[in-house]
């Protein structure tokens, strides 16, 4: 039971991604009476993916609120509460359903501070389980993070480890802006070291997960795990891979990417969202516009989701987003390419 793990001595424990988020939520609510969690089935059910777990029992129904199925209304309620002194954390049950809440997030939350001439702020957090791989098909498997990264006024995070899931959540709750955190459904059960105290990870800073001199792979969320697995195999072939985990899409840490590409001269961008018009295009363009462009020894490569909705059939579903083998193959191809 996670509650026991959480009450152990301070220090670093192995927690799952879901447990780490729950611990962060609990610590935020303990520390700050303005923080509350609301959303569909976050209370008695413990969250569709079990993230909120026992939080209702610990904090009661005033602070862990089961809501009607009303995504637009919920997003707006988060805006209103944030605008007037609360620190709402909203769970959108599957990130796909944020499409129903777009108005309040994009027209209201993102713009209020600017439209009001800097006189107000909207410190709200939206948690969104996203991604494919569970057989949930086209309307429950999307990766929509790039949509929001296109909106000035929002911050967009994609943690890949339990450590970052907790640290970025706490930073997001502190942040005076609307922050969207895209959690990955396949990561909830993955384990990793998580410090017991309430720590923060900086928003807008990427981390280098692995150092290498031959090729840079940039990704976020589950793609960094798949890239790490591919990098092990590449190492066996004598190829040194540097992996950059973006963690934050907006703001994006271009300096860390640029520094790595300057060293390796090869860039592969891997993301689960649809390849066309996605985050890969932005990163590639940033490199192309910068003086790092001259350091490239091969064309930039992008590996993204297929130009199709996510299919139900398991083998089609796998084929529709980058897998470890796809990353491996793309990296090998890139190693054989040279810029003319």
């Amino acid at each position: 039971m996670p509650a026991e793990v959480i009450t152990q001595e301070a220090g670093v424990r192995q927690l799952s991604y879901a447990e780490a988020i729950r611990e962060g939520l609990g610590q935020a609510m303990e520390a700050d009476p303005r923080v509350f969690l609301f959303g569909e089935d976050v209370g008695v059910y413990g969250g569709a993916f079990g993230v909120s777990g026992d939080l209702l029992r610990r904090f009661g129904p005033e602070r862990v609120i089961d809501t009607p199925i009303s995504e637009l209304g919920l997003a707006g309620a988060a805006v209103g509460a944030a605008l007037t002194g609360m620190r709402p954390v909203l769970e959108i049950q599957f990130s796909d359903f944020v499409t129903l809440a777009m108005e309040q997030i994009v027209n209201q939350a993102a713009k209020i501070r600017f439209m009001f001439g800097g006189k107000a702020s909207v410190p709200m957090v939206v948690r969104l389980p996203g991604g494919s791989g569970t057989g949930a098909a086209a309307q429950h498997s999307q990766s929509l993070e790039a949509w929001f990264a296109h909106v000035p006024g929002l911050k967009v995070l994609q943690p890949s480890t339990p450590h970052d899931a907790k640290g970025l959540l706490l930073a997001a709750i502190d942040d005076p802006n609307p922050v969207l955190i895209f959690e990955h459904k396949l990561l909830y059960k993955t384990k990793g070291p998580v410090p017991a105290e309430a720590y923060r990870e900086p928003i807008g800073k990427a981390v280098v997960r692995r150092s290498g001199r031959d090729i840079t792979i940039v990704g976020a969320s589950i793609m960094t795990l798949r890239a790490a697995a591919a990098a092990e195999k590449l190492a066996g072939e004598g190829i040194g891979t540097e992996i950059i985990d973006l963690r934050s899409l907006r703001p994006i840490d271009f300096a860390t990417i640029a520094q790595s590409v300057r060293k390796t001269g090869r860039l592969l961008i891997v993301y689960e969202g649809v390849k066309t018009m996605g985050i890969g295009a932005e990163i590639a363009a940033m490199i192309a516009e910068s003086d790092v462009f001259g350091a490239l020894v091969a064309p930039i490569a992008r590996l993204g989701g297929a130009d199709s909705p996510i299919p139900y059939n398991p083998s089609l579903e796998k084929a529709s987003v980058p897998q470890e083998d796809d990353i491996l193959a793309a990296a090998r191809r890139l190693m054989h390419k040279r810029k003319r």
Binding site: A136, A138, Y312, P314
Partner: peptide, 18 residues
């Protein structure tokens, strides 16, 4: 369709929910 097969109503693309 539930089994994700080509002979399903949605040729295995939709699944139970579609």
């Amino acid at each position: 369709e539930f089994f994700g097969k080509e002979t399903g109503y949605c040729r295995g693309r939709g699944g139970s929910m579609h």
